[in-house]
Write a protein that binds this DNA or RNA. Sequence first.
RNA 1: GGCCCCUUGGUCAAGAGGUUAAGACAUCGCCCUUUCACGGCGGCGACACGAGUUCGAUUCUCGUAGGGGUCACCA
Length: 488
Amino acid sequence: MENVRTRFAPSPTGYMHIGNLRTCLYEYLIARVNDGTFVLRIEDTDQERYVEGAMDAVFNTLALTGIGFDEGPGKEGAYGPYIQSQRRNLYKEYAVKLVESGHAYYCFCTKERLDSLKTGDSQLGTSFNYDRHCRNLSKEEIEANLKAGVPYVIRQKMPVDGTTTFSDLVYGDITVENKTLDDQVLLKSDGLPTYNFANVVDDHLMKITHVVRGNEYLSSTPKYNKLYEAFGWEIPTYIHLPPIMKDAHQKLSKRNGDASFLDLVDKGYLVEAILNYIALLGWSPGGSEEFFTLAELEKAFTLDGLSKSPAIFDIEKLKWMNGEYIRRMSPKAFLEAAKPWLTEGLGEELAADEAVLTKIAGLVQPRTVILSDIPERISFFGNLPDYDTVLFCHKKMKTDEENSLVALKELLRFFQNYKGVWASNDLYGEICGLAGTIEMKNSQLLWPLRTALSGRDVSPGGATELAEILGQTETIRRIEIGIDMLGG
RNA sequence: GGCCCCUUGGUCAAGAGGUUAAGACAUCGCCCUUUCACGGCGGCGACACGAGUUCGAUUCUCGUAGGGGUCACCA
């Protein structure tokens, strides 16, 4: 089999959103699974829409995800350059070739004429198609216009009747009537190619075998095929992907911050989890295994698992998967990843204590869904928040303000005299023992303790786990505060 | 509006003529438990509709409805 070559061809007009990334991922995987080549090509022929920094976003995203390209900017292969603006002089030659072979023609129509055609059409409620005014100009007219320097574009000459059928790997065979095909512009009056034209020329020149893109291109694909045929080039395999939706009606858009890959990373989603989740949006591995690393996807990916219908981006499932990835990390890896967030929650000073940091990380790891949850949940370690004494009342724990006060007084005495090992398990055992001797339920000591230590209705870890981290002095101080608040 | 595409629970999705129509997320309940979370067990919940083909259609065909895409000298 010939060498499979796929390409990711972003235009630098904004950041990478989840939909772009998924397309990129699939293109990469199709190459990998076939031992093929993955090419990165930057399509920047529209100078007006160019966005500063957009190229960096592409490179950063690829670097972060581990999706490596085999050829592209900075990694020249045999078919460069890989930035379209650096190929600008290449396309005209091909457009002219098409004119000569009778598959395209010069068009001298003015913008004004085209505009009036359009408004006429929209009044009729029909779609706009160029009226082919210049399609049959005489040789003399063309020569004269060119000589006089009249601005022109080159248009593709579409067949007037018959049908065109193309084959897509996910959508099957699709047939359209040729009369619906517009004589589209190939070369703009500035001498640069349109996207559709540059795409075909570049894909051919770069020997792309599998064209993977969003299904919004489904309706222009017949025009592509006519171009390939006109040149006598081999038509690539098409793989059109359904969109990723924000809800039932709207595609994920660049406007929405959540749709940006880099934003999700900033919010504390793990790169691996995002990649794994989006791989599953529009592709099914067949079995029931849902967890795939990039390396595993490179082996497991199959074209027949691709779906035709749009998928809604479900942040809830991503969250779940992110939590799973976090729980599967080694404590060391988690500490590493969570460090900035832990520091934010604890403050520089407390976070500098490696032992404390490690313990808190241990408490927080099984409870974390996204990293950005962390700071808020652990801030009480550094500063006891103001809290209301109703927190001491818990029906199931059988506590109220009255018996909580009793409990805290007992606990204060206990901690003041405690000489044993300052570790959660030891403390837990001792406190349960104490409960027995003063005839209270374990929970009637533990709940008030946890409340006094955290000032929160929920905390990552139980009473003695918090005490272990807080240390004896701080534990005593917080119990005294609790007693004070309960009017003791 | 023309043309093209899509349609299995709230969401992602298996299934490709005969299944009690998988699984996952979410949700609900129970258990575990020093709060929360984790974990375990269980519940609720779907083939858009109508014809046709067939002994039999979620699965094939045609319509209808709903949704999406596309109709630029943008990509």
